[in-house]
Design a protein around this nucleic acid. Structure first.
Lengths: 342, 342
DNA sequence: ATTTAGTGAGTAAACGTTTACGTAAATGGG
DNA sequence: CCCATTTACGTAAACGTTTACTCACTAAAT
């Protein structure tokens, strides 16, 4: 088969222990020996076997990432941040695409455990009971990113969705909009769905605006559900001058549907997105949106993971990522205060 | 530490060989023993250690994927296809984000080799000499996807870019466009850049249309370079009624720039994209584009990889993926034959 | 009753490393 | 110049599996 440490040892006329020490830069060898060995390694084209290494040492320098969907701007941006810092720290990353299916993610967890990952980053949906138990039984550290567990105290890095939605809504309000429609995520999504809904409602309330339930609709964060959302809103025959969509994809969906219907954004309708993925930048017109620092969140997640690993799981500190409104072209300052739009 | 096969053996009062056989469903144990062992496994919560397994058997059930950029619709769609079929076949996938940097990808190759992957899928850019040598020295099978190596005979799965560009151009021509601008990829990109350029030129030629070099500009497949591309085209002061962009992102860039400039698509200008990523679907107006079956290509790539692995590297057969024009809203049948547009 | 095949199991050797321990030679202090 | 310490290595035992050999035992065939 391939060249092993033994071959190198034999070729250089030393023991395998010496070769190992030289490869790993541990003390205990002479200058001449080192040269000899290095030359043998070069000549034979030796590559250490990380599997064998992983067996004796107890680390594999590998982390697993669970994503509900790897295509899509959101997840892939996150993944990129994760991969980049992981590599910088000398780790490789396994991607697992759970497709929001519980059985899949349970299978993934199992596989990752068998493959002895040093840690896991969970960016999938809410935890089911079974998943939670599996995660708890995990021997490696786990951090959540862009989600969290309400039932289990796993550390997470995440923006404050409630606050972000509150701020976004306030922003729309200060721009003179009063009848604001809301397109949320799944209502039973306690992590990404509900808090944004709450933040929206609270901001409206705090500004003395009534909530019109006909202007509250819900989708699944994807493009098509944004289109559908606007259709529903229009069907409600209730005036509104702005819509706050809970994801950029949905926001772009409303842009698309508005275009189909001949509604001009931002003149007739203001649209605010959430995420600040590339979709926002590429949209026509460019989408004003609430930014989540996805790449940075990915970075933070692996940093946190590694820290926990070193500290042997002490202090579980969560990280609140900063949200921010990035203004582009879909929200205008509105002069007349009443929504005149059906 | 954690529960090993030894613990199970002791607990069940059998030898580790027996446990191994039962876990792996190999013959050589009685019904009662099986039950006993299964119960012990259950009780102790035993999970096999894939690392140890990988050391003795010679497979790790792991493949590596090298991508130039993991964020972005193109790569992530491909990755999704790869992950999905890999998992179906019982493999995990390492993602490596080379960022089109040669040193990074060389490092990745090294790491993947050390981690003993069973195969690699290369979807990054063109090969440098050093990379090619490294790949050749690899003991595991390698397949290229959506790219290929001109210098090394690695199997690939890929659409015929020349033909696809030829067909796309012909499509525009049959729609009545005569002055067609072209926004290509890097001109020195012999894989994704040049062939599309050639296909475009040949189609024009075959239809008796002259090529105006002022209408040939080049970008890097990204959104911003699409915007810039249209700006350059406009600056050339040469009439054209359609633009063929070599990627959806660039096409959306021209849509965006056209919007800024008040140019109406498709009325004043037709736009044809390439890839059929979600960006095409989400664009305003929805983008007519040449589809690459990205998810299927990912699937084919792992299937091919696994086949080669089984056949011990015999027959290296390439796979031509089918391209197809998907008509949406950015190309209209044009009545007057002359491009009237500056 | 004796041989022949099977079964159901155990023993031990791999797989390629790291590392605790041992030891001989080299170094240094007095 | 001798003893103590350090340095430079080698030996061998892990790490958790799989698997080639054994071997005892049962059941069928002679």
């Amino acid at each position: 088969m391939s060249i092993t440490i033994k071959d190198v040892a034999k070729h250089a006329g030393v023991s395998i222990a010496t070769v190992s020490r030289i490869v790993n830069n541990q003390p205990g060898f002479g200058k001449k020996t080192k040269e000899k060995v290095l030359k043998s390694i070069e000549e034979l084209g030796y590559t250490p076997n990380a599997i064998a290494r992983g067996l004796v040492g107890r680390e594999t320098r590998t982390i697993g990432v669970l994503l509900p969907k790897v295509s899509g701007l959101f997840a892939s941006k996150l993944l990129e941040g994760i991969e980049t810092t992981a590599r910088k720290e000398g780790y490789s990353v396994f991607v697992c695409h759970t497709d929001s299916k519980e059985d899949r993610s349970i299978q993934d967890l199992q596989v990752l455990k068998e493959k002895q990952v040093d840690g896991m980053i969970y960016a999938s949906d809410q935890l089911s009971l079974a998943q939670g138990q599996l995660l708890e039984a995990m021997t490696c550290p786990i951090v959540f990113v862009s989600t969290q567990s309400l039932t289990h105290p796993f550390p997470y890095v995440k923006v404050d969705d409630y606050q972000a939605a509150y701020d976004g809504t306030s922003y729309l309000l200060t721009k003179g909009h009063e009848q604001i429609a809301f397109i949320g995520g799944e209502q039973d999504d306690l992590i990404a769905g509900k808090p944004r809904d709450k933040g929206f409602r609270q901001a409206m309330k705090d500004h003395g605006m009534p909530i019109n339930e006909a202007l509250m609709v819900y989708g699944d964060f994807r493009f098509q559900s944004g289109k559908k959302g606007l259709r529903q809103l229009l069907a409600a025959k209730t005036p509104f001058s702005a819509v706050f969509a809970s994801s950029d994809e949905m926001a772009v969906g409303v842009l698309s549907e508005a275009y189909d219907k001949g509604i001009s954004v931002p003149k007739d309708l203001a649209v605010l997105g959430y995420d600040n993925t590339m979709a926002a930048e590429m949209a026509i017109p460019p989408l004003t949106t609430i930014a989540q620092p996805l790449d940075d969140m990915g970075k933070q997640a692996v940093t946190l993971l590694l820290t926990i690993r070193e500290n042997r799981g002490k202090a579980i500190s969560n990280i609140e990522a900063e949200h921010e409104i990035v203004e582009r072209k879909t929200v205008l300052l509105r002069k007349n205060t009443k929504g005149l739009f059906y």
